[in-house]
């Protein structure tokens, strides 16, 4: 199907979101909660755009581009004054909630609009409730964390705010967090995350700690990866692979 984004005609498949089509056509739409590997949630509302049903339509509707499935003939504007203002408000609100998150402050400066300083949260964390960590943990199959409580008190936590057997200490949540909210302590012997300590497995090749024992068990249980994935770190696996190529080539 055909649609127009910021005056640029774009081709799209049914079921695609506006964001997908825009990015493919190198049209920039800022996002926070979106991640290509995860299902959309439409939580941050930074990616809002204005849409009209067809070129002659006057009434525009503001939608989240990460969730809105494209329709034939759709007219999308990604940077109307209204859209820009809404994004600004979203960032202003997040900046007040997370005064210590430099990523938010940077994005806010980049917007360059009339920023409003809202009352900063006294106990503000860096968490912007994007749910990336929760969705990633779900995708991995662990479901160790979730958004608990509701409204402004909502926070990401393991059940009972306590150690849980569901967590394997893989660290994906921390790696995918856009603001560095999730604290991780790494030592050669253990990794500490969500107030829980996980023993590290050492690489059979170089001896470096490369994943937690619990992660290794979890991944092995899936039975989808080659055995060397659980014994060797990524660098050693690459080196071994390179060595094999060399042998094949000579």
């Amino acid at each position: 199907m055909q649609l127009v984004i910021d005056g640029i005609p774009c081709t799209a498949e049914s079921g695609e979101t506006i964001l997908q089509v825009a990015r493919r056509n190198r049209i920039d739409i800022p996002t926070l909660c979106h991640h290509d590997a995860l299902e959309g949630v439409g939580a941050c509302r930074l990616c809002v755009v204005a849409v009209r049903a067809h070129a002659e339509a006057v009434d525009a509707q503001v939608v989240a581009s990460c969730m809105y499935a494209v329709k034939d003939g759709l007219q999308v504007d990604t940077a109307t004054p209204e859209v820009r203002r809404l994004r600004q408000t979203v960032l202003d609100l997040l900046a007040a909630r997370c005064p210590d998150a430099p990523e938010i402050q940077a994005l806010r400066e980049r917007m360059g609009g009339d920023a409003i300083d809202y009352a900063p949260a006294v106990d503000g964390s860096k968490c912007i409730m994007c749910y990336r960590c929760v969705r990633a943990c779900e995708a991995i199959g662990c479901n160790a964390i979730a958004a608990v409580n509701r409204g402004p008190q909502k926070e990401i936590a393991p059940p009972f705010f306590d150690a849980t057997q569901r967590c394997i200490g893989c660290g994906t949540c921390a790696a995918i967090c856009p603001t560095g909210h999730i604290a991780v302590t790494e030592t050669p012997q253990y990794r500490e995350i969500w107030s829980q300590r996980f023993a590290m497995a050492q690489c059979a090749g170089c001896g470096a700690p490369f994943m937690t024992e619990a992660t290794r068990e979890h991944l092995a249980g899936l039975g989808k990866l080659k055995p060397d994935y659980f014994t060797h770190c990524a660098a050693c696996r690459q080196r071994d692979a390179a060595a094999r190529f060399v042998r094949v080539g000579t």
Partner: peptide, 10 residues
């Protein structure tokens, strides 16, 4: 999961 039950309970 306990995670979901706790989420619901809160």
């Amino acid at each position: 999961t306990e995670t979901r039950a706790f989420q619901i309970a809160t």
